[in-house]
Nucleic acid binder design. Sequence first.
DNA 1: TGCAATCCTGGTCAAGCGTCCAAGTAGCGG
DNA 2: CCGCTACTTGGACGCTTGACCAGGATTGCA
Lengths: 203, 203
Amino acid sequence: MARVAADVRRGELVDATIKVALAEGLEAATVRRIAQEAGVPLGTVHYCFGSKRALLEAVVEQVAQPDIQVELDAGRTYTVAEVIRCAFRSYWSAAGGNRDRQRLVYELVNHLVRQDDPGPRLARLIFQRAYAAVDKVLADQHDRFGELPLSRELLSRMVTAVTDGVALAWIADQDDELALEVLDGFAAVFGLALGSFAGTSDG
Amino acid sequence: MARVAADVRRGELVDATIKVALAEGLEAATVRRIAQEAGVPLGTVHYCFGSKRALLEAVVEQVAQPDIQVELDAGRTYTVAEVIRCAFRSYWSAAGGNRDRQRLVYELVNHLVRQDDPGPRLARLIFQRAYAAVDKVLADQHDRFGELPLSRELLSRMVTAVTDGVALAWIADQDDELALEVLDGFAAVFGLALGSFAGTSDG
DNA sequence: TGCAATCCTGGTCAAGCGTCCAAGTAGCGG
DNA sequence: CCGCTACTTGGACGCTTGACCAGGATTGCA
C-alpha cells in the first residue's frame, strides 16, 4: 500500500470510525471494523493511535458541530416562531443528517464520562460546542428577537435540550415527520413566549 | 444455597442488573458482574434466562416509569408556569433519582434498537410509558390548564423531550442546579405560551 | 422410599476484543 | 547506492465475554 503520513492516516481512520459508528453504533466500531472500513491492517490503527481510547478522543475533536443555517427570504417578514421553526427544520434536515450525528454524540458522551480524564472533559466540550452553535443563531437574529426574557446562555441550553430530546425519541421510533412536528410545537411555544417580548420591543 | 423458584430468582436478577447498570453503566453490566451482584453463580443466570438478551428484555419490562407527582398547596393559587415548574422539579428530584434512571433508559433504548425484534418494539414501549406519565399530569391539571393550544399527545412528547434533553446534558456536566435552572426556564416558556390561553379561559 | 421435576454449580468452550511486535518496505537525503 | 526514518503488515498474545453443560442437590408427591 502507498504510504501516507501518519497525520493523514489518522484523519482517514477518524473518518472511518465516524462512518462505522454512525451506521452501526459505537459498540460495533471495534478496531477491526474500523481498520476494515479504512482498508488498512489492524496494526496500522495501533501505529497511528496508541490505543482505541486515543482514537475515540480524536473522534471527539473531529466530530463537527455544524453551524445552524437559518435561510430566510430577504423580502419577507417573519414572526419569531417562524424563524425558530426554520432553524429547527434546517437543523433536523441538514446534509449529513444531524440526528444521526446526534446519536453518535450521545454514544460518545455516555462512553466518555465513564472514562478517566480527559473523557469527562471531552464530553463537556461536546456540549459547549452545541451551546455555541445555538448562541450564534440567537446573536445573528438579535435584531429580530430584540431583548429576550431569558439569558442567551440559558436559551442555548434549552434549545440544545430540545434537539437532543427529540433526537433521542427519534432513535426509538425513527419517525422524521413526528420529530419535525414536535420541533414545530417547540417553535410555536418559544415563539409565543419570546414573541410576546419581541412584539413589545417592536411596538 | 437455598432454592427459590425461578420466577423469584428472575426478579432478583433483574433487580441486580438494574442496580449494576445504574451504578456502572450498561456496558459494565456483564453476566458475571450481575451474577456477582445477585450472589449466584454464572450458570444460574443462564438457567433463569436463556441469554443475556432475554435478561435485558426482562429489565425493560421491569424498569418502572414512575408517575410524576405534582404537589401543590391546597389553599394557594398557582400560575401555569408555577405548576409546570413544580412538576419538573418533582420529576428531577424524585426518590430513586429520575435522572439516573433516565440514563439507564437511554442506554437500554440505544442498545435495543439495534437488536432484532422485540428490541425496537421495547424501545418504543419505553417512550410510550414516558408519554403516558406526562399525559396523566396534563389530564390531572386539565381544570387549571383549560384548553391547550397543542394536543396533549404533542405536549407529552415535547415535555418528554425536555426532560430527556436536560438529563443528557446532566450526564456530561453532573450539574443539578444548572439542570433545574434549565427546567425552570422551560416552565417559564411553557407557562407563557400555555398561560396566555389559560388566562383567556379564566378571563 | 423412590422418582420426577427443578434448581444449583463449577467449570469449559469458542469467539472476539484491544494490545503488542518483529520483520519488511517505502521514501528521502546525503 | 546506502543509511535512516517512518510507515506497513500479518500475525500472536492474554484477557473477557456470552453461551453451554454434565453432574449434583433439593423438593414435593405418590
